[in-house]
């Protein structure tokens, strides 16, 4: 009896230390790759968020030739019918336009007695930056505005567009790369576990275990490794984001706001659960399938 206990303890200790070391290595690698994946998601989502805000501030100014109030209002209503136009079209009277201009430049521009040289102006906003050009085309072709009477930030639009495209595409590319890396790490870990338990699996097969019976514990192990790594990384990123966001809002509050902490956490954890689970499952499935096929 005593001999058995000693033997039992030795085996137990052997298994535990081997598995703990291997699992720890797997979880930490999965954690690091998920950390990079999470950071990328954090950056990409914020770029989308911030650029959407910048976009939402893009305005098309249309200078009117007429100074007849009814005509101007009718024009505004015509423009509003276009589905790409966001919200009501703002009508600026020449007086208001002048006031704003003076406020911006901080000087008096015009004698109050003289006639205001500024025209009536319509301010058009769109839902999406891609809609600026189509709306401009619509104004020129369908409503007969002159090109020179429209003001909108052409170059800025194009530059921001290019920059965010580069970051998005780069981000997606890196994300795919990190996801692949995670998958391979989990595949390799499970492969090692499978090899370590080779004899046992072989015996299980020979005494009539189904493939699914053999597969399940490994799939579970893969999923646990994947999920643990991704959850820890999501947690750490979430906490870091909380402080980062807080500081940004205190120091750079006048710039476009990043995504709120709570919403970011939701995104990070959703991505963590999905990617950790699916990569753990896929990685372990592939490794076990390879082994089972080899033997069939």
């Amino acid at each position: 009896m005593f001999r058995n206990l000693v033997y039992y303890f030795k085996q137990f200790w052997f298994n535990i230390t081997r598995n703990v070391l291997m699992s720890f290595a797997a979880i930490s690698t999965s954690f690091f790759s998920q950390l990079i994946l999470g950071s990328l998601i954090l950056v990409v989502f914020n770029i989308n968020h911030i650029s959407a805000q910048v976009w939402s501030q893009v305005e098309i100014w249309c200078f009117m030739e007429t100074s007849n109030r009814e005509e101007v209002v009718a024009r505004a209503e015509q423009i509003q019918e276009n589905r790409m136009v966001r919200g009501p079209v703002e009508i600026k009277t020449p007086k208001k336009a002048l006031e704003e201009l003076e406020k911006d430049l901080e000087i008096g521009l015009w004698d109050k007695d003289e006639e205001n040289p500024l025209p009536w102006t319509l301010v058009v906003r769109v839902h999406d930056p891609d809609q600026v050009q189509p709306v401009v085309d619509f104004l020129i072709n369908d409503l007969g505005f002159k090109k020179d009477d429209l003001r909108y930030p052409k170059d800025v639009v194009r530059k921001i567009n290019t920059a965010s495209m580069v970051i998005k595409v780069g981000g997606y590319f890196l994300t795919v790369l990190m996801a692949t890396l995670t998958l391979f790490i989990i595949m390799n870990t499970i492969r090692l576990t499978v090899i370590a338990r080779r004899a046992e699996i072989r015996t299980m097969q020979l005494v009539g275990a189904t493939s699914w019976f053999i597969r399940w514990p490994f799939l579970l192990e893969g999923i646990i490794i994947g999920l643990t790594g991704s959850m820890i990384s999501a947690l750490i990123l979430g906490v870091m984001y909380y402080f980062g966001h807080d500081m940004y809002m205190r120091v750079l509050f006048f710039l476009p706001h990043p995504i709120g902490t709570l919403q970011m956490m939701r995104i990070l954890f959703t991505v963590a659960v999905i990617s950790g689970f699916s990569m753990g499952l896929a990685g372990s499935y592939i490794s076990v399938a390879r082994f089972l096929d080899e033997d069939a």
Partner: peptide
């Protein structure tokens, strides 16, 4: 696997699990 359950085998090398 279901067929193998109907065929019991005593292996030459036993295939017992030592742990």
């Amino acid at each position: 696997p279901y067929l193998r359950r109907k065929v019991g085998v005593v292996f030459q090398d036993f295939k017992l699990l030592p742990n």
